[in-house]
C-alpha cells in the first residue's frame, strides 16, 4: 500500500500552502483519525480552476490523496469537479485500500466538493 510515490508525496506534498485571497475555501476533519484538510481555490473567468492549494495534517494516505487531487483538477471547470467521482481519485492513488482507509483517501475530495457546492466555511461559522 505504501508505494514509493505515496511516501514521496507525504514528504514533499504538491500544492501545499494557502491562497489569499481565494474564491472559496473549505475545511473538514475526520475526527476518528484526526485527519484535517483545507483546500483553497481560485477560479478564472471561464469557471475553471486557476489555482489550488491545500493544507492539513493526517496520515500518508490522506495527504498523498490531497496532493494528487489538487494536481489533477487544475484547469478543470467547476462542473467537471462536480462530476469528479470517488473512483477517479482512487484510481489516481492506485493502491488497494481497506474499508477503514478509504475515508482517509476521500477526505480531500469531500472537502473540495463541499467548497464547490458553496458550503459555508465551518471556520467562518465558528466565529
Amino acid at each position: 500500500m505504501y508505494r514509493d510515490q505515496i511516501i514521496d508525496l507525504y514528504e514533499n506534498p504538491l500544492n501545499f500552502g494557502s491562497l489569499e485571497p481565494s474564491d472559496f475555501t473549505y475545511e473538514e476533519d475526520n475526527p476518528l483519525c484526526g485527519d484535517v484538510i483545507r483546500i483553497y481555490v481560485r477560479v478564472d473567468d471561464d469557471n475553471r480552476i486557476a489555482d489550488v492549494r491545500w493544507s492539513g495534517v493526517g496520515c500518508a494516505i490522506s495527504q498523498a490523496s490531497a496532493s494528487l487531487l489538487t494536481e489533477d483538477i487544475k484547469g478543470k471547470t467547476l462542473d467537471e469537479i462536480k462530476a469528479y467521482s470517488k473512483e477517479d481519485l482512487l484510481e489516481l492513488l492506485g493502491i488497494q485500500l481497506s474499508m477503514t482507509r478509504i475515508k482517509c483517501a476521500l477526505l480531500s475530495l469531500k472537502v473540495l466538493k463541499a467548497g464547490v457546492y458553496g458550503m459555508p466555511d465551518p471556520q467562518e461559522l465558528r466565529k
Partner: peptide, 22 residues
Amino acid sequence: GVHPHDISQLLDEDGVAIRAGH
C-alpha cells in the same frame, strides 16, 4: 513523522494488530 494509522497499517502487513486513533 508517522501518523498512527500508517503505523497500524504497516504493522498489519507484518501480522501485528494494534489500534490507532483516539
